[in-house]
C-alpha cells in the first residue's frame, strides 16, 4: 500500500461502523486472510488494489467481507 502512504509496520486506525465506499482503504477478509487494500467499485466489478506496482489488482468474485474502513494511519518517523 506504498502508493497510499501505508508502509510496513504502520498502525492503522480503523472504523467498523462506517460503510465502505469505492476509493476507501479497507481491511478485508479475502482468501482466508486479512488484507489492506483500496476498494474500487466499477459498474460491473469489485476490485481490491494493493497500491503497489508489484502487485496486480484482485477482482472480488465472491461476496466481499469488509472488516473495517481505515480512517487514519500512524506512521513512525523516528523509532529512537
Amino acid at each position: 500500500m506504498i502508493g497510499a502512504g501505508v508502509y510496513d509496520g504502520d498502525v492503522l486506525v480503523v472504523n467498523r461502523a462506517i460503510e465502505a465506499r469505492s476509493g476507501d482503504i479497507i481491511v478485508a477478509y479475502v482468501d482466508g486472510g486479512m488484507t489492506v487494500k483500496r476498494l474500487h467499485v466499477t459498474e460491473d466489478a469489485v476490485w481490491l488494489r494493493a497500491e503497489n506496482a508489484e502487485y496486480r489488482p484482485i477482482q472480488v468474485t465472491e461476496s466481499l467481507h469488509v472488516w473495517a474502513v481505515a480512517t487514519h494511519n500512524l506512521h513512525t518517523l523516528c523509532s529512537r
Binding site: V11, L12, V27, G33, M34, T35, V36
Partner: peptide, 11 residues
C-alpha cells in the same frame, strides 16, 4: 483491543 504490542496484524 488493550495492548499496543498485541494489535491485529494485516498484510
Amino acid at each position: 483491543t488493550t495492548r499496543w504490542d498485541e494489535l491485529m496484524v494485516v498484510r
